[in-house]
Amino acid sequence: MFDLPLFLNSSLLSIGVFHFFAAMITIVSLLVVVSQHPVKSAVFLVVDLFLLAGLYASMDSHFIAAIQILVYAGAIVVLFLFVIMLLNLKADSIKGLRFSAPEAAALLISFIGFLIMTFNVFRGQAPEGIKGGFSIEAIDANGGNTYMVAMRLLTTYIWPFELASMLILLAIVAAIVIAKKDKILKSLIQKELR
């Protein structure tokens, strides 16, 4: 008899889900890079981030999945879209695309790196990491993934966490200072208008 729950819990389905997500992510990532209009790229980037969040959720990292959509899709890409529309950018022309020697060299090197990484992965030579004490069963027994991540983030990693908050503060100030209109320029324009 076909046992549905057993099938749902089996590795066959999770591998199928993973391959579906992987194929989608690859296609959408490609579209992000090759779309001519930046707005299209931004929209595909949102879809990509959404699919990645699905992949994270399938790995029991619900907190990270939610944060991914909230911060990346909800804030960062909106910012991109906003700037694109504010500057009223047009589609890139493919004609302007040309190779310069350093870029070609960089592409070649990165492609070799890509081949080495893929080869190593398939050879099964990925180094054995240090096994932590947080298997899925242990996490579920101790109050769930979100609780455990929060506990670890706010005890062991409290100083990096505080540093990250300082970094955000710095970025806010920097963004305002950089994007602020030049006062001298502004007064000049006003003089011209008068």
């Binding site: 949102v46 619900h62 939610a66 944060i67 959509i69 909800g74 804030a75 993934n145």
Partner: peptide
Amino acid sequence: VDVGFLFIFAISSL
């Protein structure tokens, strides 16, 4: 979901 709050914010930000 156990992160219902975050889920609502994440999706509604879309």
